[in-house]
C-alpha cells in the first residue's frame, strides 16, 4: 500500500533527478576543473554566477536581453507565418512547386551570414536587418516541412473531404494544416534553434546592443566571467524556448502523440 502510494512521488523525484542530474554533474566538473587550473579564461562557477547577477539583473536586461528576445520573437513568428502560408500555397499548387523548387535549393544553400552585407545595404543597420537575417535562415525548415506536410496528406482523407465538399478555407483549417502539423511543428522546432543562433550572429554586425553583441564585447574586453555568464544566459534562453515549444507542441499535436501511443499498443 505504502509502496504504491509513494510511487508517484518517487517517479516525480526521479524525473527531477534525471533532468537536473547532468547539469549538476557538469557544474561539479566545471568547479573541480577551475579550482585546480586557476586559468583566467575558465573562472569558477561562483565567479560566473556573481557576474551573471551583476550583468544581467540590471540595465543590460532592458538594453540587451529584451531587444534580442524581441527580434528573435518577431523573426521566428515572421518565419513561421511566411513559411506556413507560402508552404501551403506551394504544397497545394503543382505549377508553383515546379517553378519554385529549384530556386529553393539555391537559396537554402546560401548561409544567412553571407547575406548580411547585402541585407545591411538594403535594410540599413537596424532591427529590420537583424530580423531579416533571422528570417532568411529560419523560414526554410518551416517552408519546406510545410510543403512536404501539405503534399503528404493521406489520399483517403483528401477524398473524404472532397466527397463531403469540405473545401477552401475550411479544408485548410480543418484538414490540410492539421494533417501537415506534425511536420510543420518539426520545422518550427528547427526554426527556433536556428533563430537563436542567428539572433546572436545578426548582433555581431553593425551592432551596439543585444545579447550577441554583448557577449562578443565582453570577450573583446577580456571580461571573461561576464562573457561566460552571457553564454550561460543564452543556454538558459535555449532551455526556456525549448520548454515553451514543448508546451505548444503537446497542445497542437496531442492527437498525434495519442494516436502513436495507441498504435504502439
Amino acid at each position: 500500500m505504502t509502496r504504491t502510494r509513494l510511487r508517484p512521488v518517487a517517479g516525480a523525484l526521479r524525473a527531477v533527478g534525471y533532468a537536473a542530474g547532468l547539469p549538476a554533474l557538469a557544474l561539479l566538473a566545471w568547479a573541480l576543473a577551475t579550482d585546480r587550473s586557476a586559468s583566467i579564461y575558465f573562472p569558477p562557477p561562483g565567479t560566473i554566477a556573481n557576474a551573471f547577477a551583476a550583468t544581467w539583473f540590471g540595465p543590460a536586461f532592458t538594453t540587451d536581453v529584451l531587444p534580442s528576445l524581441g527580434r528573435f520573437a518577431v523573426g521566428v513568428l515572421l518565419s513561421i507565418v511566411i513559411g506556413v502560408v507560402a508552404g501551403t500555397a506551394i504544397g497545394t499548387t503543382r505549377w508553383l512547386r515546379d517553378l519554385l523548387e529549384p530556386l529553393f535549393e539555391f537559396f537554402r544553400a546560401v548561409p544567412p551570414v553571407v547575406l548580411v552585407p547585402v541585407l545591411m545595404l538594403m535594410l540599413g543597420v537596424g532591427d529590420s536587418m537583424r530580423i531579416a537575417v533571422i528570417v532568411s535562415g529560419c523560414v526554410w525548415p518551416v517552408l519546406l516541412n510545410t510543403v512536404e506536410g501539405v503534399r503528404g496528406v493521406d489520399t483517403v482523407l483528401t477524398e473524404t473531404s472532397r466527397s463531403y465538399r469540405v473545401r477552401g478555407a475550411l479544408s485548410l483549417r480543418y484538414v490540410v494544416l492539421p494533417a501537415a502539423s506534425p511536420q510543420i511543428m518539426a520545422g518550427i522546432r528547427l526554426c527556433l534553434s536556428i533563430g537563436l543562433i542567428l539572433m546572436v550572429i545578426s548582433e555581431m554586425f553593425a551592432s551596439s546592443s543585444g545579447l550577441g553583441y554583448r557577449i562578443v564585447y565582453f570577450q573583446r574586453s577580456f571580461m571573461i566571467a561576464q562573457m561566460w555568464s552571457g553564454i550561460v544566459l543564452l543556454g538558459l534562453i535555449g532551455v526556456a524556448v525549448a520548454t515553451l515549444y514543448g508546451i505548444a507542441e503537446r497542445r497542437v499535436l496531442h492527437w498525434y502523440h495519442g494516436m502513436r501511443e495507441v498504435a504502439r499498443g
Partner: peptide
C-alpha cells in the same frame, strides 16, 4: 553620439546607402 559597429570595408557602402 549613436555608435554602431561596421567593419572598415563596409563603411563606404553604408555611408552611401545613408544607413550611417
Amino acid at each position: 553620439i549613436e555608435f554602431v559597429e561596421v567593419a572598415f570595408p563596409d563603411a563606404a557602402a553604408q555611408l552611401e546607402a545613408g544607413n550611417i
